[in-house]
Write a protein that binds this DNA or RNA. Sequence first.
DNA 1: GTTAGGG
DNA 2: CCCTAAC
Length: 198
Amino acid sequence: MPIVKSFACSVVVGESTERDILAKLMQDASASHLPIPPEAADNPNDANEADVAGRTNGADHAQQGTAGHQTVSIEGAQGVQLPEEYVPATNKRNLMEKHANAYTYEWDGLGDSDDGRPVGKRQLPPFERKSHPSPACAHKIRKKWSEIEEKTLLEGVEKYGKGNWKDIKMAYPDVFQERSTIDLKDKFRNMERYHESA
DNA sequence: GTTAGGG
DNA sequence: CCCTAAC
């Protein structure tokens, strides 16, 4: 059977990617006979996209705020109900059961208040189901790369050369404050892969 | 300590 | 995005 592998988790903030197809698959499953999973049944959804670079530059930050996606765990969407008990980790879940039902606590404004992730515990009644924080995985929340970020990245690569992500990041702290060198590298690679040849 | 590659 | 290996 065509098992959907993917990365097993991804909390999109302002864009849907892998979960999109997963959601479709889920719908297909639900359309057959399975009911809608609780994860996608309800979702207050805040969809707040903080202007990554608009805080300092204020150049252009009007291409965001188009969120409104359901946070659904593919693993649990298939029918494998995840337990309500999650083990709050310290900070990192290196060798933790990331593949299992492991759950790490969200870094609420510790090192990154990107879009002001509303992980704060609201006075949600016991009836409500906090389906927002992905149950199966709690990474760092995918941040929507703005045009300025991509442009700045290209600029840095053009200026400092590809591979010197550290220098690039230091060159534009305002833009890449919430981006790590790994992110820069990854983003650049993705861009190259996308273009393929242009 | 950083970077490159794979998941 | 996260983890691991190599430089």
